[in-house]
Write a protein that binds this DNA or RNA. Sequence first.
RNA 1: GGGCGAGUGGCGGAAUGGCAGACGCGCCGGCCUUAGGAGCCGGUGCCCCGCAAGGGGCGUGUCGGUUCGACCCCGACCUCGCCUACCA
Length: 847
Amino acid sequence: MTTTSERTRIERYDAASIEPRWQARWAELGLHRTDLEDTSRPRYYLLTMYDYPSGDLHIGHWYVKTPTDAIARYHRMLGQNVFLPVGFDAFGLPAENAAIKNRVNPREWTMRNVENMRRQLRSMGASWDWAAEIVTCDASYYRWNQWLFLRLLEAGLAYRAKAPVDWCPNDGTLAREQVEGTDRRCWRCGSKVEKRDLEQWWLRITKYADELLDFSGIDWPDPIRIMQTNWIGRSEGGEIVFTTAPDDHQPGGDELRVFTTRPDTLFGATFMVLAPEHPLVEKLTAPSRQAEVEAYVAQARTETEIERLSTDREKTGVALGAHAVNPVNGERIPIFVADYVLGGYGTGAIMAVPAHDERDYAFAETFGLPIRRVVAAPGTEDAPLTEAYVAHAADERLVNSGPYSGMLADEGGRAIVASLTERGLGRPAVTYRIRDWLISRQRYWGTPIPIIHCERCGAVPVPDDQLPVLLPETVDYRGSGDNPLTRDEAFLRVDCPACGGPARRETDTMDTFIDSSWYWFRYLSPGKSDGPVDGPLADRWTPVDQYTGGAEHAVMHLLYSRFFTKAMRDIGLIHESEPFRRLFNQGQILGADGERMSKSRGNVQDPDELVARYGADTIRLFLMFMGPWDQGGAWSPTGIGGVHRFLNRTWTIALDPHGTDPGDQEAGTLPAGQDVAAAEAALRTAAHRTLRDVTEDYEGFRFNTMVAKLMELSNVLYRHRGTEIAGGSAWEESVRLLLLMLAPSAPHLAEELWSRRLAASGRDWSSIHAERWPEVDGAAIVEETREVPVQVNGKLRDRVVVPAGVDGAELERLVLAAPKVQAALGGRTPDRVVVAGGGRLVNLVIR
RNA sequence: GGGCGAGUGGCGGAAUGGCAGACGCGCCGGCCUUAGGAGCCGGUGCCCCGCAAGGGGCGUGUCGGUUCGACCCCGACCUCGCCUACCA
């Protein structure tokens, strides 16, 4: 800190006394309240992914939020009407866990955390519009989850179906993340977790699969688009109908539909495989195989899909003792059940072509099944296969394929599908990897699904006028992972809205990703009591102009949000089809050990103690200065002092242009030979070039270089402190620009210095944050001379100073005349002279 | 196994076809000081020649290619990180 007794003329920079004062003042003035009805300025809706109120803000939260606030402040200075809301994603498991462990009420626990985080967030000095805050566990929010669910139900976009969930014999249903290890143990009691079939609620996201593949009109990072595209996993191919052959134990004639992307390999199908869940498994199994098949299917149920699909695992399966007929050649092939075929993808059954599919090849090897090549590149027709031939070359042709032999593979595939289609035994088909969204959670702390189960009427929607279905505030926890709603008689007992008879409420709650799938609409009208969304405001303010958040949500939150937006459009609530026009994924701050920050690892950096030591502005600037925002990195406070010094020097520059330090020997005079006019011109050039570069950096989210350039400008000014130009008009202009450029990122310091300088000049205070972003003076950034690097054969040999406006020929002459260039050429004449980049550099080539 | 991203001084990083290492940390030397974990001034990629002023060589994970010119573009590989995982 600046403590030199000789400099007691000015107060020193003390963030602790400045920051709370301005935060209070800004709040008092309502500087960050957004008037959504104001259409006189262009809108800018800026959104950061909201947080789970875990209770403690760590430096990672700051890392995510600081640049967003700087962007908001920058855009306000550009004259835009900026909306920067904040809220809390307040439903979820941690509150339940705390309730079980510490016997506290989940709502109390959550709201206490929200309170604490609000306080910590305010210490950042960010310009959020707190008036728009939402907390998703408030009934005023989640009632609209329920309302939206009922509309989706009416629209056929929500439905109920049976599905397996993870189940622990002691603790009941578990969330996926509560199942640990490859041997699938319960995280709490260590019991082996199994699957249970339960009636579940689903949302029909698959209906939008094709529309979700279309990213036109949104500016999102490629990795996210690729991940979503892969997740949706569209495959084109054909559906082919096999028929079961009659056997001793069953009459045959059942259709076995398969999906394939390679109908051209149909003649190579030497067996079929059904998923363990396939409905025909039981029927087709021969009595002699029954015990083995049943044991295998039961075994498969205890494993997760991920486990079953792990590629390095040995292929397992059991023959059913039944056969199917290949529709294209009448061949009888055996049918197996094996867990490498998934019940939920395609038709849950495949035709196995071991010659041209790695998985089928491995299976055929294990079980000694025939492998027949039907596709070959020219000249390889008779080459023996030692592995599946899967390359798909344009010139490969069908072999061993009856009438199709000799055709190009692609052509043959199309011909086979066409022929099967004609005979009613197949059709072209498209399949997706994406499945419908399972939203039922057997949990307490979430949005109750607004359904009433009546013995007579079935699942009956709760009428709108009975919403919200409130989550009971006091519930009976039994100290394990069960859902106390299932024991809450007051909650459960209800009359059927349809027939009036006795009925029970649905006790499942919604996946918390529902909350985050439409929250940016609610920010626009958080108090609206007759609907979830204010239509006209939504039309005016969405899609969100800029969204920022972590890439870990690529295929969850970000895909669900796109789906919800389209569904809400189809329900008639809004008109837009996409939620977020631009997306930026910032990186993640890790602990000093390079691991994810977590309390249990003890590597969490608490921002409060840093704020106490340096002030919020220093922390904000340091986080932006660390490196590119999309990169993140391990937390290390090393270097924070450098940023703090920069702010200290800025303070000194702004308030004490003439002061001199005892040790500051060089200060006080310009370098010999430099006159005042030239020094002032150079200073203005530096200031306006900085403005040009900093503007570009704010636009491009390059905050680390933005800070570096401000440091450079402050270094220039600092060096000139006490000289003849200090306090002059060029100096004053440069200081003014420096403060304006600093305002979005170090808002308190900029405001303080701005106000002191206005006061010193006798003018009234007005906030620097209400100022307009300055304009670059084009005349100031051109210089009279410039330095041209000269290379000989690509190696730097000299730098030649030339007048700014010289043309190519003149530049060449000046360069060749330079003594060092001559020496480097050794008397020879260049074979070629390359004047690059409009005279930025000259390369002389000698052979 | 697949996909995506990244490899630059002691450290964080800058430069996306044109002066490699901006800016900052750290370190070294000096000033100021009763003191310095404050402040100020100067230096700082590595190696070599020179008393010096200076000068030279090497250098962006590795190997090749394109180009007058490559950290940057292309090909192959190595290492690390993240995501994903038998999707027929």
